[in-house]
Structures are given as structure tokens and as C-alpha cells.
Design a binder for these strands. Structure first.
Length: 466
RNA sequence: UCCUCGGUAGCUCAAUGGCAGAGCGCCCGGCUGUUAACCGGAUUGUUGGAGGUUCGAGUCCUCCCCGAGGAGCCA
């Protein structure tokens, strides 16, 4: 195995004269009379290692097998590079080919490919510049998320993937069953007998870890989940996946202001970490994918987020309308904010992240805390340019009677929420939390335009090939 | 799921209803230091699928499949 210190990233920092052994995959190769240049990468960093092969050093039959995509071991000496683009290069003494890559059929070329094409070869795209950078950023981001919460004493809770509560109320669920679909057990009245199923009742893939996080927050004070969630929506957009990763902190003894502050601090911390630890990769995104990424991220880390209430947001949208702005969807107090409205606020009015709070209770979930005005709830959405909603959160309703009323008012069955209500009967406390879509944040960080290109293997309607 | 646009060589794309093409890649040759190397040459086709109109369909019509963007849902 490759030990720490022996990755190509490390080799590039070694002093001239060091004898090294590099392992990796060939990106590209250039030949001249009597000299060959091979660029190889092992995924450890954005920069490739340039291997120089002088005439006669390596057998011709070996050299012929060094094609784009082939996997190599190269031994030699690190020397100063006379060419531009790299400080050092590896002067090869021995080359061993681990695995050939037939150049007639290997689909990755030296030249750029479209994202659509790379998506169809997800098993090979990880070796490309773009996807190497994407997944290194994703790794740095994930580590920074854990570090942020761990430094603040939050407990990492593993919320379940399988659930029998279809009461989470956040979109269509994937049904999970071990029943024989060709021969379903039936009740006397002819319905499917779900008591015969694995859990003795209908089961699903989770759409959120929030309710379980609330249980843990009311025992461990500050907690967070970080795991996959599933939505069976027929969503076919560049911003939706059927399987995506979500980060959900939950804090006892916290209100919506605390929640909003945590969200801002969280985004600034994690963005700062990526700026620091994945600089090469971000510079690549800034150069080749979206030339506003670096400036945007640096601006976010140093400036404050805007905060408006829903009511104020509606007023801004109405003002725009009165000044001639055409809205496809009508704006009035009580209507949900549409994509065009969110974009206007964050991209045109404020040009930075905006937190909108205190939405009408009718357009938000039953568990959000009712304000004293009786018409709004303590909800917040964090909106960012280009992406839209990146975080959704709220202060939770901790008062038993009011929660019970809201469950009834929304036509839900209180029996289904018995344990959730129990949390309000025994030792309830004010608490708040939010959910962040990891892939949405990845899009924000990298400038990548399609969410399917910031997750290793996308799951979407009709798409689960890899 | 709805709306719009698209599917032609390995990739990116062109082709008034009338001989299916270019660039790049791959391959071969050349060049003593290349950086998406360069120069020369060669190869590359079930025009997404099934029907239909027509003397003749990549092009027009119908249905289906796939992709992209927008909308809804949301993270």
C-alpha cells in the first residue's frame, strides 16, 4: 500500500535528488525524438506528476503499453524540471505496467469531455481532472463538517435508514419490503397483509433524520446527523437526487436566532476549510467551471449573511412588481416563495446568502414553533445565489398542547406521533435545528451545474446504473 | 410528472427532401524538453428505435426510448 508521504502529492514536495517510487494512472503522454513525457496522477492532489523517460532507459515494449488510462509504477530520481508547469519531475529508471488501457477503446481522451458524456462512464470519470477535484473537495467538506460539530461538543448520532413512520411529511417515500411481489399475502378483505412483512408493518427509506435527532437533542443537548436520505419524487432537475446526503444539527435550549447563527457559522467554517485545504481544486473550478466561485466563497467567509422575515421578503417582491418586474407566480402574503422569488432576493437584491425567517404557518411543517402572532412559524430558509435553498430549518414546537393542535389542524393522525408528542410530555425544552443538503453545498463550492456531478454515483428517476 | 430543445464517426458538431462531412481522439510516420505539444498521413457510420409520406428521408409525419434546460416538489 501507499504510505502517508508517498502519494504523488507528497512526491511533488520532495527535494531534488530523492529516489522515489510513484504509483498512478496515466493522464496523458507526449513524445519527442528520444524523450517521452508521461503525466500521471494517483488522485491525491490536483497536480499530476510528470515522468520523463529518456531514450533507451525503458524497453520499447513497456513504453508501448504506457497509454492514457494505463496504471503504472515508476521508480526513479526526482530532478528539477526545466519546463514550465512543474518544479520537479520524475526521471524514470524503471517502469512497470500494472494494468494496460487499450487506447482504441479507452473512453477518456486527453481533450475535454462534456459532463453528460462523463456521467455515462461514472466508473472512469473519477480519474478525470474535474471529478478528481470534485471528490477531493467533497472529502475535505465532509471532514470539516464533522470537525465543526465535534469542536462544539455536538454528538454524532446515527439516525436509522429504515423507518416505519411515514409521518415525516417530506415528500414521497421508497417502500422497503421482503414480501413476494408476485404472490402478496392478503387480508380477508383483500388488501395486502403488511403484518406479514419484515417489520410487521409498512417500511420505508428515511427522508430525514430530524425526528430521531430531536430525541437525541433532548438527551445529549447538541447533536447532529450526517448520512444518506431518500426521496422517491419524480424530480428530474439539476438540483434533485433520489439519494442524497444530509447534515442535520439539532440543539436543545436553542431558539431560531441561535439556529440562524449556527447555520451562518457552519457555512463560513466549512467553506473556509475548503478554501484552505482544497485550494488547488477550487482554483481549477474557478478557471474551468465557473470563474466566480473563488470570489463568491471568499466573500461569504468574510461578510455577514442577510436576514429578512418572510413578511419583509414579500414586501420587497411586491415593490419589485410595482416597479415593473414581471413575476410568473403572483406574490402575496401567504403564498410560498417560488424559485424566481428566492433567486431575485439572493442574486439581485442582496447578492449574498440570505436567511428568510418566520413563514406563514400554512406553508410550513406542523412541527415548527408557532409565533405569538398566531399566523407565522419560526422557520428559516438559507438561500444562496445560483443554488437557491441550501439549508432549511426551524425552531421546533416544544409545547404539547400547541403541537397537538397543529397536528390535528393539518389533518394528521396524532396516534402516529405518539413518541414525538411524548418528548413534549416529559422534560420538553425549546430546541431548534436545520437540514443541509450536502450536494447542494457541493454545487455551491465547485460551481458544478448538475447535482449528479457532485455525488459519486447518482440515483435519480431511471438512473442507478453504477 | 408537465413544458421546451436535442439525439449523425470514439468525442464535439455540420449537412435547401437529392453522393453523409469537418475538427479532435485513436493508429502510422516525423521532430533531443513536451505542458489540451507540434508537423504530415491514414482510418472511422444500423444518422437513437419502430412504422409512415415520397421517385428519393439524417431532413417531413406518428409512436416509443434516451439526454439537456425550465417548472413543480424540496435539500
Amino acid at each position: 500500500m501507499i504510505e502517508k508521504g508517498s502519494y504523488i502529492r507528497d512526491i511533488l514536495r520532495q527535494p531534488v535528488g530523492t529516489t522515489v517510487e510513484a504509483h498512478g494512472w496515466v493522464k496523458t503522454r507526449r513524445d519527442s525524438r528520444g524523450i517521452h513525457f508521461i503525466q500521471m496522477n494517483d488522485g491525491s492532489g490536483f497536480s499530476d506528476l510528470q515522468v520523463v523517460v529518456e531514450a533507451g532507459v525503458v524497453p520499447a515494449e513497456t513504453l508501448a503499453r504506457v497509454t492514457t488510462g494505463a496504471c503504472l509504477r515508476v521508480c526513479g530520481e526526482l530532478v528539477a524540471s526545466p519546463g514550465a508547469g512543474q518544479a520537479v519531475e520524475l526521471k524514470a529508471r524503471v517502469i512497470e505496467v500494472y494494468g494496460d488501457a487499450d487506447s482504441a477503446t479507452y473512453p477518456l481522451q486527453k481533450k475535454g469531455h462534456t459532463m453528460e458524456f462523463l456521467r455515462e462512464i461514472a466508473h472512469l470519470r473519477a480519474r478525470s481532472n474535474t471529478f478528481g477535484a470534485v471528490f477531493r473537495v467533497r472529502n475535505v467538506l465532509s471532514a470539516a463538517i464533522h470537525r465543526f460539530f465535534q469542536e462544539r461538543g455536538f454528538l454524532y448520532v446515527h439516525s436509522p435508514i429504515l423507518t416505519t413512520s411515514d409521518c415525516e411529511g417530506a415528500g414521497a417515500l421508497f417502500r422497503v419490503t421482503t414480501l413476494d411481489l408476485m404472490n402478496l399475502p392478503r387480508t380477508p378483505s383483500g388488501e395486502v397483509d403488511t403484518t406479514a412483512d419484515f417489520f410487521g408493518r409498512p417500511a420505508y427509506l428515511t427522508v430525514s433524520g430530524q425526528l430521531e435527532a430531536e430525541i437525541f437533542a433532548l438527551a445529549f443537548t447538541n447533536v447532529y446527523t450526517f448520512g444518506p436520505t431518500f426521496r422517491a419524487e419524480q424530480s428530474n432537475t439539476p438540483r434533485h437526487l433520489a439519494e442524497f446526503w444530509m447534515v442535520e444539527p439539532e440543539m436543545a435550549f436553542a431558539d431560531l436566532d441561535d439556529d440562524r447563527r449556527l447555520a451562518e457559522e457552519f457555512l463560513k467554517y466549512t467553506i473556509g476549510a475548503v478554501l484552505e485545504e482544497a485550494r488547488d481544486d477550487l482554483e481549477f473550478f474557478n478557471k474551468r467551471i465557473d470563474n466566480t466561485v473563488l470570489a463568491t466563497l471568499e466573500h461569504v467567509v468574510t461578510s455577514g449573511f442577510e436576514h429578512v422575515t418572510y413578511t419583509e421578503a414579500i414586501r420587497l417582491l411586491e415593490q419589485a412588481r410595482d416597479q415593473g418586474r414581471q413575476w410568473e407566480f403572483p406574490v402575496h402574503w401567504g403564498a410560498d416563495l417560488q424559485s424566481e422569488h428566492e433567486r431575485y432576493l439572493t442574486e439581485e437584491v442582496f447578492r449574498k446568502p440570505v436567511v428568510v425567517t418566520d413563514y406563514p404557518k400554512e406553508i410550513k411543517a406542523f412541527y415548527m414553533r408557532l409565533n405569538d402572532d398566531g399566523r407565522t412559524v419560526r422557520a428559516m430558509d438559507v438561500l444562496v445565489p445560483r443554488i437557491g435553498e441550501i439549508i432549511g430549518g426551524s425552531q421546533r414546537e416544544e409545547r404539547y398542547d400547541i403541537l397537538r393542535e397543529r397536528i390535528d389542524a393539518q389533518g394528521l393522525n396524532a396516534d402516529d406521533y405518539w413518541w414525538y408528542l411524548d418528548l413534549r410530555r416529559y422534560g420538553s425544552a425549546p430546541h431548534a435545528g436545520f437540514g443541509l443538503g450536502l450536494e447542494r453545498m457541493m454545487m455551491y463550492l465547485t460551481g458544478m451545474k448538475n447535482i449528479r456531478d457532485v455525488i459519486p454515483f447518482a440515483r435519480a428517476p431511471g438512473e442507478a446504473r453504477f
